[in-house]
Amino acid sequence: MTSMRPTGEWDGTTFAHEAFLFATDQEVLDRIVPFTVEGLSRGEPVLVVAGKRVRRLLAAELGQDVRRLATFAAAETWWRGGHGTLHAYDRDLRTLRSAAPTWRLVAEPVWLAREDGREWSRFEAVANRCYAAMPYYSLCLHDRRRLPTSVLDAVVRTHPLTWSGHAPVEAAAYEDPTRFLRSVQPEWDARPGHSAVWTVTAPQEARRALAAAVIDGWRERADDVVLATHELLTNALRVAPFVEVAFWTDHETLVVEVADTGPGLPDETRGYVPPAADLAGGRGMWLAWSLADDAAVASSPTGTAIRLYFRR
């Protein structure tokens, strides 16, 4: 008879990221309860951020032990958009890092069931890279009964671990974060013929041109468009003597493209990673991504082009 190993070979020194897909209440209990009890027995902080049904099941099963959890919170209140949610999550992780040598998290991103919450899969992918050295185990719960097939497909591609029934194992469908991001970003079609195009050598040039080009119907997004583009231009002009900026509208979407002839991005995930609090630079892509509604990257050793998408 094989004994259960809730965290497998995890030694508490690095990030472990598991997708647990369930279809019954009993499956939830069979996975979460041993995981939680093991953590409590080892003196590790155990955090639970889950939907109402999962919290009710766990509270009934743990009884008084639920008071020993470091956090027992409603996931329904956590969604602030992809960048806002990750920024708050990142702050909490760094606070934990300063207070505990290791911890474990049970998380149910209930917002994945909503159209506006599905971008979270991108941040799940990036977490594998930006939190690789964080000493915690993240057990992510995903309800097969509520989530569409497309979301479940993204789940298994963004988590390096899955559950075998008695221990976590490597997930066969897991993809490198950059590859996953490229597969879910907007299609990179040729610029339309009506695009406005400028070659600039200083961000101020593009700021003025863009501010003038944002036509009626888009005025409410003008500040976002100009500031996000300025951040990308500032980055691009550090690696190239000039930058090409293109601007066009496509039905309900305004698109800005910033293209340079530099050496390519060292890491295409940077727009999804919160910059460290003490980092003097490196905030440009994060800020630009957070101001836009979507983004796409085409990068190679001969240059980088980034498109930002703004909706009305």
Rank of each mutant, 00 (worst) to 15 (best):
F123Q: 00
W111N: 04
R144Y: 04
V46C: 13
A127L: 05
S150F: 14
H142K: 06
E124F: 11
G84P: 08
S98Q: 01
H142S: 11
L112S: 04
R114E: 11
M134G: 02
A133T: 13
A127H: 00
L141Q: 10
L141V: 07
L147E: 02
W111G: 07
W79A: 15
G51D: 02
V49L: 14
Y131G: 00
H87C: 06
G63K: 10
R122A: 13
L57W: 10
W79Y: 15
G63P: 09
A133P: 04
M134R: 01
A74T: 13
T77D: 15
M134F: 03
A132H: 06
A100G: 00
M134E: 05
Y89K: 00
H142C: 14
E115G: 02
A73Y: 09
A132K: 09
L96H: 07
R80M: 01
P135W: 00
E108G: 07
V126L: 08
L141Y: 11
L47I: 11
H142D: 03
V54F: 02
H83C: 02
G51L: 07
A100F: 02
A99C: 07
D143N: 12
L57T: 06
D90A: 15
E124T: 05
A60D: 09
Y136N: 02
L58N: 05
A99K: 09
T85R: 11
W111F: 15
R97A: 08
A50L: 06
Y131A: 00
W103C: 03
M134N: 04
V106H: 04
H142Y: 15
R55T: 05
D143C: 13
R80C: 01
T95G: 09
A99S: 08
T102Q: 05
Y137Q: 00
A75Y: 05
A107L: 15
R122C: 11
P109I: 01
R91M: 06
L69V: 09
P148H: 12
L86W: 05
W78Y: 12
S98V: 01
F123E: 00
C130D: 06
L141R: 07
Y131W: 13
V48C: 15
M134D: 06
G63Y: 04
L93C: 09
A50W: 05
V110D: 00
W79P: 14
Y136M: 01
D90W: 10
R97F: 03
P148I: 12
K52H: 13
E115C: 03
L105W: 06
W103H: 06
R80I: 01
P109V: 03
L141N: 04
E119K: 10
V48Y: 11
C140G: 06
W111Q: 14
D90L: 09
E115A: 12
S150G: 15
L62M: 09
K52V: 05
R53L: 05
S121F: 04
L141E: 05
C130G: 02
V48L: 12
L93Q: 10
S121G: 11
R68I: 02
L139P: 03
M134H: 08
A70T: 14
T149H: 13
C140P: 12
V54R: 05
F72Y: 12
L139R: 02
H87T: 09
G84E: 01
G51S: 03
R91W: 00
A113I: 06
A113P: 09
L57A: 10
P135R: 01
A107Y: 11
R122N: 08
G117H: 14
D143R: 13
R122I: 01
R97G: 02
